[in-house]
Amino acid sequence: MSIVINHLTFAYTEGGKRLAPTLKDLTFTIEEGEFLGIIGHTGSGKSTFVQHLNGLLPSEKDTVLVDGHDLSEKAERRRARELVGMVFQYPEYQLFAESVAEDIAFGPKNMKLEEPEIDRRVRHAMELVGLDYERFSKRSPFELSGGERRRTAIAGVLSMEPKYLVLDEPMAGLDPKGRGNILALLEQIRRESGCTVIMISHSMDDIARHATKVLVLEKGEIAMLDTPQNVFSHADKLESLGLSVPNVTKICTEMNKRGISIPTTICTEAALLDWFKGVKHHA
């Protein structure tokens, strides 16, 4: 099972007029179990693209298929919204219920699940994001700290137990500890439930460390789609698109300039340290 994107083109309309297309003829497949990182300059169509994955924006027949469900049909869209969880930028701004538990139960309730099942899911989602049920479930989401609110909002999506989890810059505005918490959480749900993760991020370091595949968007088109190692080894191309590369890639580039031949596919701290260990071992 997978998400199939098939010649997807999309243009916004304003005042009845069709604007220049934001997405141009995208074709590719998101395989189950992947961690797809999406990068691109502001205005490259990243956010527009992910809103197609659960039918928040209209698509034409057979252009977006989630596990075979064609999102151009209304009934199929509803089904797809249960399969594809969507965490928007600053998701804490969507919190509304009187208590943390009630807010997290909003999705499962809309899915018309039975009360005991809803309760189980709320508890499980809170456990995943690291919010203690006894301590937090009855509290108002509005009196929590920024990081706790963010985790509550993410739990509100996880409680729908999506097969595909889409996140649009989930770490924006958080402090380093908060960022670490979210990334660890993503790794954990991937391990536990085999959930497919699709994440937009501006942090090349985070993408390099966590993604299994990277999609680079430029003006609504696919500029690159490959492993992080291969994508980030094209530093020049990324820079021409207004994107940066991971810090480790920069270090490797600088080392190559100084006559040390080190593969530019090295893009994480761990890989770099391994290379250094290898050198030591030889010597």
Partner: peptide, 20 residues
């Protein structure tokens, strides 16, 4: 203080531990 040094400094510190 729950702070993370810049990526390059992290790499630098790790390399020091390797003996550089």
């Amino acid at each position: 203080s729950n702070l993370v040094p810049p990526e390059t400094v992290k790499v630098r510190n790790a390399l020091r531990e390797l003996g550089y």
